[in-house]
Structure formats: structure tokens, C-alpha cells
Design a protein around this nucleic acid. Sequence first.
DNA 1: TTTGAAAAATGCGAAGC
DNA 2: GCTTCGCATTTTTCAAA
Lengths: 150, 150
Amino acid sequence: MDNLDEMDMEILNYLQDNGKRPYSEIARLLDVSEGTIRSRVNKMLKNEVFEFIIHTNPNKVGLNVQVIVGITTQLGKQDAVAAHLQQYPEVRFVGAFSGKHDLIIQAYFKSNDDLVNFVNHELSKIEGVMNADVNVELKQFKDTFSYIIP
Amino acid sequence: MDNLDEMDMEILNYLQDNGKRPYSEIARLLDVSEGTIRSRVNKMLKNEVFEFIIHTNPNKVGLNVQVIVGITTQLGKQDAVAAHLQQYPEVRFVGAFSGKHDLIIQAYFKSNDDLVNFVNHELSKIEGVMNADVNVELKQFKDTFSYIIP
DNA sequence: TTTGAAAAATGCGAAGC
DNA sequence: GCTTCGCATTTTTCAAA
């Protein structure tokens, strides 16, 4: 709940390099005891500051088609459309935006067929969706999660 | 390099719920020995199938302004612009797309001031950038990394 | 590759400062 | 809130099937 101090940020910085880095190693690097790191990590986990996950390379698990779709929704239907979209496992990200599109989503598919199927048979049938601007990824330059600016 | 079998996928499925899940627990769930899980995990790590990371809640670390920017680049300058953009720590994602925009990026900022500064003083000065369509996130509905479809 | 068992390292809880 | 110190759990190592 309360704010993070410098040591918390340093802990996050070490962990975002490698989620398996042992508390004892971080403790050595920051010159405190292992218990200190552990209690701070657990406090941050409890406060949902971060979570331990894995980042899978989509291509290596057969998800070769990645898209970002800008969606225009009918006035007043934005929340309902978003609630609907977030239920799809293929949809990784859903956000409401100011700008050209009301909603922007990011999704992964195994094949172009699956993508076309999603757009034509799912997206187009959601009530309140007026327009969908589909962008298919051709090349990925960066996809990091280490966004704690040091 | 070679393909993942069903057990590999199940391991990924268990880990994406919780990157700290012990190998021994996964072993029990899949009815194999702990060493089997470990050797498969290490093989996948070596082949860059996935990595252990943390996912930090941007709001909790003071990154309150999230944007997705669609960028139109001058013909032939796409790669150069992308290479430039990916150097900013604020920029989490850079991809080349087919569709309305040549490049799409996702970035986090501490404040609107920082965003405006980035757009006016950095983005606008990159050679080859012709247009930038800035979308500011108003609300986040979903932001998951568990996209291994079971 | 997978297994099993011993050794090493890590994580945990509690008490005290 | 930080540390220390036993104890439990996990990870590592390695020989063998």
C-alpha cells in the first residue's frame, strides 16, 4: 500500500533480470541480511507490487501470429466489449485508450486461419464493436518487462 | 531447438501460474521425478523457450502513464527507427506491423510531462518518423502473460 | 532421458534487538 | 524493521539404469 523505498526498487531491479535470483544473493549485493530481502519481497507480493512469472517466447510454443487490434466501440458499450474480450485466452492485453481507438488489444494465434476466424467469427459478433483495425506483427524488435527505470 | 512435447507444455502451464512453483511439486502433479522436471526446464531455458522474470505493476512503481503509439515511417527507414526506439528504457515493446502503422510501440512514463517530453523531444526528432498516433491508456482490463492455450 | 539418494544451497519461522 | 539461528524444503550433483 505505502510507497516503495530505494531498497525495494533495487530488489525489483535485481529480480527483473532473473526471477530465480536467490534472496541470499540479493542480500549480499545490498549488504543486508537474507531475512530483510525476504520480508520486503513478501510484503511487496502481498501488496501486489509484482509477481513471479515466466515469459514464454510465443514462437517457440507455436504462437506465430501476433496482432494488435484497435477497436472502435459504440458509445456506452466500451466496458461491455472489454469485459467480453478479456475472456479469450488468445487475448493477452485489453486496454481502454484515448486517441483514435476506444480499445486496443494484443492477441496471439497459432495461424493466420485462427486469426481470421477470431476476427470474423468472434470479434465481429460482439455487440458494440463498430470497427476493428487489425495490425499483424511482421517483426519484433523489443518485448521486455524490465521497465523499472534505474 | 526441437519441438516441445506435451509434458514440456504442461510444465510451462504450471510455471506461468507461479514462477516460483517448486520442481518437486510439478513432478508430483505429473507423476515423474523431480530430476525430470529440472532437466526439461533447463533444456527449455537453454533453448530460450521461456525465462523466469517478474511482472511489476507499473502503477505501484510510479509509472502511471502508459501509451501505445502507432508510428508511420519513411519508406526504407523502418528498421533504423525501430533500432533507435528500442534503446529507450521507457519503451517496453517495439514491433513492425502490417496495417495502418509501420511500427507500434508500447511505453511507460511517470507523468504526462514525461510523455509529452518523449513525444516532442525524442520521437519527433528521430529521422524517418513521419507521423505518430499516440494512444494514452485510460483503463487496463487485462495484462496477462499466461497465453499458453491449454 | 529418467531416476534415486547424498550434499549444498535456499527459504522459512521465531525470538531478540 | 533488521538480524541471527536452527530447521524444513528445494535445488544440485552424479552415478546408474
